[in-house]
Amino acid sequence: MITNRKTALEIGVNVLFITIAIGMFIVSADYKFVRGTLLGARTFPLLVGSIMMVFALINIFKTLGIQSSEENVEVEQALKELTKGKFNNWLRTYRVAAAIGLMVLYYLMMLAVGFIFATVIFLPAMLYLNEYRKPMKVIVVTIVGVAFLYISFKVLLGVPLPTAQLF
């Protein structure tokens, strides 16, 4: 089950990059070669893209080969022990998905309300996801953290912080 998902992910990643390489081939068809040579804006992407596709295909065939082999049973067992059960493994996946979701929300909030307010909302949520859940501690860490970031970056170093852009 675990390795099945991993296999799917591995094949998906390789297929994704093959697609990207094909897309780059199509787009780069518009770029001309320097007259009388094979030099031009399309040369390097064509070369690298082709090589990458070969490696991606090898990866896919290798993954499929491992998936159908008997060794896979042992790997499955080892992974089960490593991730300590189905529930824990599900929890780990959920956490990663939630963290990515929170980051996307954080980005959108920055666009809407700017860095400071977005961070005030994002930090407690991320702390909660990280099992840091005592309310008083979360409030203190958030307020002190945001104040520290503002003072050290904006005031002392003069580093600009992301500002709201939607309104």
Binding site: M103, Y106, Y107, M110, F115, T119, L123, M126, L127, Y132
Partner: peptide, 13 residues
């Protein structure tokens, strides 16, 4: 957990 949460924010900055 606190350090990890702040790494996200530092990464954005």
């Amino acid at each position: 957990s606190v350090i990890v949460s702040f790494i996200f924010v530092f990464s954005v900055l």
